[in-house]
Design a protein around this nucleic acid. Structure first.
Lengths: 385, 385
DNA sequence: TTGAAAGCGCTAACAA
DNA sequence: TTGTTAGCGCTTTCAA
């Protein structure tokens, strides 16, 4: 009786937008809402007949479960935040466009395959945009290259939401896990490659910002120079400025101690250097060897084709998502994902790939090891837990 | 009494994860939960003192409102779906990478500025990935270049969720609104530019797929040829294949009726054509004029720099979001956004930009109108409906 | 095996 | 001006 009264009392008529709710389905199928829920979610121990019947009724009514209600009830939204650093008003920076795009693409696929979707969110900003962080229920978050004391990361972790970063976090940022390339090994291997190709003085085009990538790569360069007994020759420029790279490349080749090989840390540096070399009448690779870090395929068809270091952002994106979802599902599954000794987050170091092309192979002394592709040997995909 | 009993009876102790809920805040501030809600959302008519007090208590307790509960209650999630076409397993296609990235970047900014966040979702697929569509509460959706009878679009519209497409929808796809370039005017203007630069036979590198962009652009080319009394000279290739473009470019230049100018519809065609020209010993722009549709800045520094047609994806992304949010907020605001006469969706046509560089300016006869940038005159930003 | 009932945390209508 | 209450639509004990 109470039940019947309840059913009737309820304003069960129109739902939001007139769509069918679980109660309509239950009524139409002649079962309880519990049975509907179980049948649709594959739970409980219902006879197959009931399950099929409920499913067909639900389909006929065009029933779509409410994601909001499910999220409220279960505490899981199936949503993962993806934060991109904003420069000024815009997300992304020009110089890392291809990297971000590829990384995000792979992360999207990996998340989708495990039933999660990505929500694009801005890094902390002074605007009220910050509010969007509270307006969306996240099961976890991916942060790309977080700054040393990112307030968003700190806050999320404090709330118990797993955070995995692309890029080794600086400072003592309390991320759940991180994934990064072994930048030091990559730079070292690349410089060895240039030296083996005959370079005597290798220059560097680097950035003025203090992010981990720039810092580690530059340090690796300086260390290599010291070991090789070469004076460092480098120019730093604000990498977020789309024109500054060309100017810096020009400055580098204008120096009295002009390098005979240059490595550019950012994606457009290949064309920047090629243009600068042209202005100074330097032939590549005859007079100048050129390598840059890039994910762009245009360097396969430039004149000459340019050797690039690929950070394999696709692999990074995939790994980040796997680590994050493992943390999410492990955390809710009962056992803690890692008894992490306070200052030691789970992490994964991914290999880079040096794609050797004409620009780093001088014609006079053909390289003994003429492989088309050399994978940096020192950085196997290792999981340190 | 009833109230007091209720408060006590309730299992008010631990919340999910131990975080403070609205009730804890109310208790700590000595007010009711309604007051807390109103104070935090700027609603109601509370004295400023109360508002500040509640806010400070909430902050002290580290209170974060539950997005799921708010969504369930209000019916608005603040989430907008962004669908990317998937080719095989991967979202995005190589050839339109830069376009998508730039469009998504602008859309993200525009959405954030109005308090919405974007959720990346796959277009309909045979996988169970389709489920993610039901697992996230969307206020609206952006679809990029939908296929003629996209089941996702149809389903969303049936559910009353606004859908705005980037690209004029084919078939009778019932989108709420759409945004597109005037591809016909763009191609026509571009071909006029080449003809003015001295081209006598203009070739086309086009795609084999039947999407709107490829179809409209190719048709415009054929019409232009007919008007100009020129025989069409074109090669079509599967644009999603990253290598096929180079082959098609080669085929085009190998023809007996070799064109003296070529327009490539896809982003990598510039380097494809440059490489092919090199193989045939053709100088650009002396023997061959080259233009391609691209958003990539590398064409500013190739040798020679290549004239590109930009579709201005940033503007498109911004417009799409504005139209969508207008529809979302108009729809819930009471008055219908548009009494649309059935087959006439709101739409917006955006201008393209021809960025003229060396590759389309033959040295012998300097172009009379030597502007660096020519905006197609026929496509002002017009809002119909 | 199936169903009733209790909320998840919040907002908005209504009461006081 | 402030507080009480009724759900939003679902999942999940717990009882039948």
């Amino acid at each position: 009786m109470t039940a019947a009264k309840h059913q009737v009392t309820r304003k069960t008529g129109r739902r939001t937008g007139g769509r069918a709710g679980i109660r309509e389905v239950a009524a139409a199928a002649g079962v309880s809402i519990t049975t509907v829920s179980d049948a649709l979610n594959g739970k409980g121990r219902l006879p197959d007949a009931t399950r099929r019947h409920v499913r067909s009724v639900a389909e006929r009514l065009g029933y779509r479960p409410s994601a909001a209600a499910r999220t409220l009830r279960t505490g899981k939204s199936g949503l993962i935040g993806l934060t991109v650093t904003t420069y000024g008003e815009e997300p992304f920076t020009f110089t890392e466009f291809a990297y971000f795009a590829e990384m995000a693409r792979a992360a999207t696929s990996a998340a989708l395959a495990r039933g999660y979707a990505l929500v694009i969110l801005p890094a902390a900003s002074q605007h009220r945009e910050f509010d969007v962080w509270s307006n969306v229920a996240l099961d976890g978050t991916v942060v790309i290259d977080p700054s040393d004391h990112d307030p968003v990361v700190t806050e999320l972790v404090r709330q118990g939401i797993p955070v995995v970063s692309d890029g080794r976090p600086g400072g003592s940022l309390p991320v759940t896990a991180w994934v990064d390339n072994d930048h030091e090994a990559a730079v070292t291997g690349l410089l060895d490659h240039l030296a083996a190709a005959g370079a005597r003085r290798i220059g560097l085009l680097t950035g003025t910002s203090t992010d981990t990538y720039t810092r580690l790569s530059t340090t690796a360069y300086l260390n290599w120079c010291e070991r090789a007994g070469q004076n460092p020759v480098y120019e730093a420029y604000p990498a977020h400025d789309p024109c500054a790279g060309a100017v810096a490349a020009d400055r580098l080749l204008a120096r009295p101690d002009r390098p005979d090989a240059v490595y550019g840390l950012f994606d457009p540096n290949g064309t920047d250097l090629l243009a600068a070399a042209r202005r100074y009448g330097l032939r590549v690779p005859d007079d100048l060897l050129v390598v840059c870090c890039s994910e762009s395929s245009v360097y396969a068809t430039t004149e000459p084709p340019i050797t690039t270091l690929s950070l394999k952002p696709g692999r990074i994106g995939t790994s980040v998502i796997q680590l994050l979802i493992d943390a999410i599902e492990g955390a809710s599954g009962g056992r803690p994902p890692a008894p992490a000794p306070a200052a030691e987050a789970a992490h994964q170091v991914m290999p880079t790939e040096l794609i050797v092309r004409t620009s780093s192979q001088p014609p006079r002394r053909p390289a003994a090891s003429a492989r088309a592709t050399v994978t940096a040997p020192r950085t196997p995909p290792a999981i340190d837990q």
